[in-house]
Amino acid sequence: MCGRYATTRDSGALSQLFEAYDDTDGRLRPDWNVAPTKPVPVVRVDDKGTRALSLARWGLLPPWATSPSAGARMINARAETVATSRAYATPFARRRCLVPADGWYEWTRTDGGKQPYYLTRTDGDVLALAGIWSVWRGPDGPWLTCSVLTTSAVGALADVHDRMPVLLPPQRWGRWLAPTADPTALLGADEDWLAGLEIRPVGPAVGNVRNDGPELTARVPGVPLPRRRPSTVETADEMTLF
């Protein structure tokens, strides 16, 4: 599950990091509490074969969707079934993207309630979440929409949640975006790269989407790291989405 994350780098920094031209028209804003249906930066290959930094609505809308509200339920695509899913198979085969993030949030159940954790790189490097994108044509014109791929959590991350986003190290970025690449070969975890992740306990304010700011990612002292796998899958009931 990846239902909340932070992405705070500006378009200039992201364009440079991912060697992409800026197609955001100055609309990208830092967000420490990204929630479903918000506009998010994605790196994709455009119709001319050029790498572009674009804004997409988080929650993929297949062409047959009758309402944009359907996207709130399609923020994640399971790596195990994405290649055969009616909604996701074509974007997975033809329209893959990178979703830049500083880190993502997960919740675990404790005796005192629910404890949020922020998962991020210890060195501050950008995370590239494996994504797919599609264009939905609504009554007010075309919308670029996207989903994040998730997979079974590994190592210490599995103590926080049983799912995690598919994280692509820099050496996989080009192949993931290449139209002719076999994307299934890129979904496996890079254990060495994952070793650079930090599991950071944070405060409960992130649970409300109306809250935003760097303080949401601040470490809460005295909170232990999770020591066991959660017995149930946490979903949107941990958060106030809207």
Rank of each mutant, 00 (worst) to 15 (best):
Q16W: 10
F242R: 14
S67R: 12
T7E: 03
P170N: 08
A93R: 15
Q171S: 15
R200S: 04
N76G: 08
R228S: 15
T150H: 03
G49M: 08
A52Y: 00
C146Y: 02
A205F: 10
L55D: 04
V43D: 05
L241Q: 13
W107C: 06
L149P: 00
K48M: 10
A65W: 11
R78M: 11
D46F: 04
P201K: 06
E80K: 06
V99H: 01
N33G: 07
D46V: 06
D162V: 10
S54T: 08
A13E: 14
D10A: 07
W58V: 02
T151Q: 08
P62D: 10
A195L: 08
P91W: 10
L167T: 04
T81V: 09
I199T: 12
D22C: 09
V45T: 15
P30H: 08
Y117P: 03
L55N: 03
R9W: 15
N211Y: 05
L177H: 01
P41K: 07
K38T: 10
P169R: 02
Q171P: 12
A20H: 08
A70I: 10
A130I: 15
P139F: 09
T150E: 08
R175L: 13
G113I: 03
P224D: 14
G26H: 07
G103E: 01
T120D: 06
C146V: 07
R4T: 05
R228T: 13
D47Q: 13
V223M: 01
D10P: 02
G124A: 11
I199N: 00
T81P: 08
L61R: 06
W136V: 02
P214S: 00
S15K: 07
A20P: 01
P139Y: 11
L119S: 01
L194T: 00
W107L: 03
R95A: 12
M1E: 12
L186A: 10
V42G: 02
T90W: 13
D22P: 11
E215M: 12
A128T: 03
P170V: 06
F242T: 10
S231F: 10
N76T: 11
V126E: 15
A77I: 07
R137P: 02
L187K: 09
R44S: 06
R4K: 10
V209T: 15
W64P: 06
I132V: 15
G203F: 04
L186S: 08
P165V: 01
A6Q: 01
D162M: 08
F92W: 10
R57H: 03
P183C: 12
D125C: 04
D23T: 05
A72F: 12
G49A: 09
V206N: 04
H161T: 04
A89W: 00
T24R: 02
